Simulated scan of single mutants.
Amino acid sequence: MAALNETTSNNRLHNCVAPPSPTDFIDCSCYTLNFMERKFLNIGIDPTDAFAVKVRIITPSRYVNLTPDFLARIYSLMDKILSVVLDTPKYKCHLFLETALFKVSHCVLNQENHLVIELKTATGFRVLLNRYDLFRLENLKRCILETVARKTVSSRPAVLKQFDHVSDYINKTIAKMRTPPSDMNELRMFIKSVQDEKIVSSMPKKGVNYAAQIKMFATTQLAECWVNARSAGNLSVITPSSSRSAPPTHAAGRSDHSDGPRCTARAPAPDERADEDDESDSAVPETGRGAKRKFSS
Rank of each mutant, 00 (worst) to 15 (best):
Y75S: 05
Q111Y: 14
T8R: 13
C107I: 10
R38I: 07
K206I: 10
T99V: 07
L82A: 06
G124I: 01
I117R: 01
S182R: 13
R142I: 08
S282T: 10
T147V: 13
D69C: 10
V55Q: 05
V153K: 14
I174W: 01
E37P: 02
S167C: 10
P261M: 05
K90Y: 03
L41H: 01
A2M: 04
Y63P: 00
A283K: 06
E138T: 07
R156C: 03
M36F: 15
E272I: 04
A246Q: 13
L115P: 04
I117W: 03
K141D: 04
T264E: 03
L129R: 07
D46Q: 13
I238Q: 13
S182P: 01
S61F: 15
R273K: 15
S243T: 08
A52L: 06
P240R: 14
L95K: 10
A269V: 00
V153L: 09
S241V: 12
S243P: 07
M216L: 12
Q221T: 02
E98Q: 14
S193V: 06
P204D: 09
A218E: 02
L41S: 07
M78F: 14
R136H: 04
S236H: 14
R254E: 11
F125Q: 08
F102G: 00
I57Y: 04
R293T: 08
V200K: 08
L41E: 05
F102W: 11
I191C: 00
D24A: 05
E276M: 04
K141N: 08
S258T: 13
V127M: 05
Q221C: 06
K206Y: 15
A158E: 06
P89C: 09
K172D: 15
T220Y: 01
E98D: 06
